[in-house]
Design a protein around this nucleic acid. Structure first.
Length: 417
RNA sequence: CGGGCUGUCGUAUAAUGGCAGUAUACGUGCUUUGGGAGCACGCGGCUUGGGUUCGAUUCCCAGCAGCCCGACCA
C-alpha cells in the first residue's frame, strides 16, 4: 500500500484524556476512530489487524471442526424472553417507530438464537456432536465503557457454540477448545492464564477465562507462580501470598485482561427452546451445550498493551497490518538508475510480487516525520532507502535497536520466509 | 448508576468579565531533506440552555459530551 494514498494520517500529539496505551496509540496512529465512548470505527490499518486476528481465530476454529456461520444482530424479543435475559441491564432495546414498546434487541450474545435454530436440525444422537461459530458485533450497554477497545459498548467477538449428547462429550470438546484457544493467543503474541471463574448471566456452572496479565486489566486473579493454576477473585478463596491448592507454589495477585472464556452451559438453553435428541433406545434427552468467546477487538487492544514502547506500537509479525514499512527518504529517487540502485518504488513492487505485505511511505515528507511515523505505526521491519544507503537498503526491526545495511537479495532472504 | 476532573480553530494548548493568542495541521509560493525542516502570506475556534451583569468564552446553575475512580462487568 502506498502511504500517500492512505486516507488516514497520524496525529502529532496523543488524544487528550486517554490514559490506556491502546487508546493513545491506536487513535494517534490512525488505526481506530472513536465515534462515541466505547464505540469505534476500524480504519484501514486497524481493520487489517482485525483481519489478521480473525484469520488466526478462523484457522484454529476450523481445525477443531467449528463451522462458520453468521447470525443476525437484530433479535426478536421472544428469544431473550425465553431465557429471562430480556431485562438484563446491558441489553440495548430497539424501537421501530411503530410499536411504542421495543420488540427487538441488539445482539449482546447468541445462545438463544443458535439454540433455537439448532432445534430445527438436531433430532437424533446421530446429529451430535457439532459446533458452529461466528465472528460478529456484540452490543452491550456497559455502564462504563473504558480503556479504549478494552471495554466497549459495541465490539467484535468470535462466539463458538457446541452441542453434545451428554456432559462427558461436552467435557471432551471443552478441552479441545481450551487447546485451540491457547493456540490463538500464543499466535497473537499473548500469554494467557487459564483461570477458574464464574458464569455471570450465562451459566450457573463454573467457567474458565483466558486472562492476559496486564496492569490495565479490569479483573483480579490469583495465579500460582509455579504451576500457573489460577482463579478469578470473584469466586476465589485464595489470596496473594498463599499456597497453591494444586502444587503448594506461591500465589500471586495480578490484574488481568479477560481475552477469552469457555462456558459449560448444560441444558439451560436446550430446555428453553426444547432442543432434544432421541438416543439409541428411543428416549428423548436434552442437548448439552457449551459456549466459547474471544473478544477480537479486545484482543487487538491487549496486543497493543503488551507490545509498545514510548515511541509507538511494536506489532508482533503475526498480527501486524503490514510486515514491512518501506521508507523512501528525500533524494533517493533522484536518479536511481544512474546511481546503479534499485528505486524504492521498484523495491516495493518486487517485494509485493513475492507476497510480502508492504506499506510504502512515498509521501513528500521530511526524514524525521517518516521515521517518527514508522516507530508510531510499529510494523515489524523498517526498510530505508536514501542517498546514504547507496545501492543497499537499511534494515531495522522495530523490536531491536540495531540497523543493518543489506543488498536487495539479502532483504528478500530475510523477509521471504 | 454514585463520585472526581475536563469541555477554546482539524489536533494539542494559553490567556481573559469588554480585540481570543501560540504550536501544529491545512492552502499558496520559495528554499530545504537521516529523527516530526525554514521563511512569507492565507484559512480556521470559545459544548448547549438558563442565570448574574451595561456586557459572559470567562462567574453561578442545569443539560450534554469525554476521561478517571467506584459499583457493575459473558
Amino acid at each position: 500500500m502506498l502511504q500517500s494514498k492512505l486516507f488516514t494520517k497520524t496525529e502529532r500529539t496523543f488524544p487528550k484524556d486517554e490514559e490506556a496505551a491502546n487508546a493513545r496509540f491506536l487513535e494517534r496512529a490512525g488505526f481506530i476512530y472513536k465515534n462515541s465512548a466505547g464505540v469505534y470505527s476500524y480504519l484501514p490499518l486497524g481493520w487489517r489487524v482485525i483481519q489478521k486476528l480473525v484469520a488466526i481465530i478462523r484457522e484454529e476454529m476450523d481445525a477443531i471442526g467449528g463451522q462458520e456461520m453468521f447470525m443476525p444482530a437484530l433479535h426478536d424479543k421472544r428469544y431473550l424472553s425465553a431465557t429471562g435475559r430480556w431485562d438484563v441491564d446491558v441489553v440495548f432495546k430497539v424501537l421501530d417507530g411503530k410499536n411504542p414498546k421495543p420488540a427487538f434487541s441488539l445482539s449482546w450474545t447468541h445462545e438463544e438464537l443458535i439454540t433455537e435454530l439448532a432445534s430445527k436440525y438436531v433430532h437424533s444422537y446421530k446429529d451430535l456432536p457439532f459446533s458452529a461459530y461466528q465472528i460478529q458485533t456484540k452490543f452491550r450497554n456497559e455502564p462504563r465503557a473504558k480503556s479504549g477497545l478494552l471495554r466497549g459498548r459495541e465490539f467484535m467477538m468470535k462466539d463458538l457454540y457446541s452441542f453434545h449428547r451428554d456432559e462427558e462429550d461436552l467435557d471432551r470438546f471443552y478441552d479441545i477448545v481450551k487447546e485451540a484457544y491457547f493456540n490463538v493467543f500464543k499466535r497473537a503474541g499473548i500469554q494467557a492464564v487459564y483461570t477458574l471463574a464464574a458464569g455471570g448471566d450465562f451459566t450457573s456452572s463454573n467457567t474458565h477465562e483466558f486472562q492476559a496479565i496486564c496492569p490495565v486489566g479490569e479483573d483480579t486473579i490469583y495465579v500460582c507462580s509455579k504451576c500457573a493454576y489460577a482463579e478469578n477473585k470473584e469466586i476465589s478463596k485464595l489470596s496473594g501470598g498463599g499456597r497453591c491448592p494444586k502444587c503448594e507454589g506461591k500465589i500471586k495477585e495480578e490484574k488481568a485482561i479477560e481475552v477469552g472464556n469457555i462456558f459449560p452451559l448444560g441444558a439451560k438453553y436446550s430446555d428453553a427452546f426444547d432442543l432434544r435428541y432421541t438416543d439409541e433406545k428411543g428416549e428423548k434427552n436434552p442437548v448439552v451445550m457449551g459456549s466459547y468467546g474471544i473478544g477480537v477487538s479486545r484482543l487487538m487492544a491487549t496486543v497493543v498493551e503488551m507490545y509498545h514502547d514510548e515511541k509507538g506500537i511494536v506489532w508482533p509479525e503475526s498480527v501486524a497490518p503490514f510486515k514491512v514499512h518501506l521508507l523512501e527518504l528525500a533524494g533517493a529517487s533522484a536518479s536511481p538508475a544512474e546511481a546503479g540502485r534499485k528505486s524504492a518504488k521498484k523495491i516495493y513492487e518486487d517485494l509485493q510480487k513475492i507476497g510480502v505485505e508492504v506499506l510504502y511511505d512515498d509521501r513528500k515528507a521530511s526524514a524525521g516525520e517518516k521515521l517518527t511515523d514508522a516507530d508510531l505505526i510499529g510494523l515489524p521491519f523498517r526498510l530505508v532507502v536514501s542517498p546514504k544507503t547507496g545501492d543497499k537498503i537499511e534494515v531495522k526491526k522495530r523490536n531491536e535497536e540495531i540497523t543493518k545495511i543489506m543488498s536487495f537479495e539479502e532483504v528478500i532472504k530475510l523477509l521471504g520466509n
